[in-house]
Design a protein around this nucleic acid. Structure first.
Lengths: 145, 145
DNA sequence: TCTTGATAGTTACATTTTCAACTAATACCC
DNA sequence: GGGTATTAGTTGAAAATGTAACTATCAAGA
């Protein structure tokens, strides 16, 4: 059997991810001038409440420099704030400001709508299987991020 | 139902794609010093023979500046060569050199192995469904790339 | 207490990517 | 033919990312 680029998973995944990301990027970029990493961090904070940068890194599979810069950017936009922990001043607890929460709430709705749109042509079963597969593949091998 | 980042497709796709790309990147980067876009272009040429930059753009969903630079890099490595078309000198037909073909053949085998590894935990049915879904999602809306 | 080593996060610098403007070649149409 | 619009591909500057070295804080043991 001849090798088909169209069956090569890293390629397909990349295409699909690109397509999906670009679509949603329009929304948070145009509306709030945010970058992808900023959006990701905002979503983590919106969904899970207060987190440290480190926790966002491991949960989101993001490198710490990316998170560091995203947090600074979110802080500059007054969407997030940080507070050093008293017990261990290396940690910073990050959380959304009132404004940040409003942005999260808005984007979260848009995300759901976008997600529905993206899966419009797929059946329930297909979607469940897709998600399960993506989770398996996306599991990070324990590395430094 | 509460919104779950873990069910949000752009997020999942990105995680999975990242994971898959990073893994395969090790191979072509370490062995041939190639970047992701270079590898993609090389694979298109290896798989489909002679193509113009424009064709690679539309087939691969890549921006023309990326392709332009990747082609230059592949040319510098003597993996690819170009030839302006006589009928219309705006077009350049790109193809692999003998060395480029050897590299393709090597990487293509590695890609197949990597692909198998990536789907190790998935059944045949799951894989088929996954691929079908990714293709649907990845279809580019007709834009400039 | 002092040294060594870890960990959270930042910063500087190099590499890549993106965006927009550009050249060159052709097509269209008066 | 001559002007205008398109298309293929390139280039330069700005933005984003990755890598590695850095600071600051704490832990643990001599």
């Amino acid at each position: 059997m001849k090798f088909e680029l169209q069956d090569f998973l890293p390629y397909l995944l990349n295409q699909a991810a690109e397509q999906a990301s670009i679509g949603f990027q329009q929304i948070y970029k145009r509306k709030y001038g945010m970058l992808r990493t900023e959006w990701r961090v905002l979503f983590h904070l919106g969904r899970y409440g207060s987190l440290t940068a480190q926790e966002i890194c491991s949960r989101g599979g993001l490198h710490k420099t990316k998170v560091s810069r995203a947090v600074s950017a979110l802080e500059a936009k007054r969407f997030a704030s940080r507070k050093k922990r008293d017990e261990d001043r290396r940690f910073e607890d990050l959380s959304l400001t009132a404004q940040g929460k409003r942005v999260y709430s808005d984007l979260q709705e848009q995300a759901e709508a976008f997600n529905r749109e993206l899966t419009r042509n797929l059946t329930e079963t297909e979607i469940r299987n897709l998600i399960a597969c993506l989770r398996k593949i996306g599991k990070q091998s324990a590395d430094n991020r």
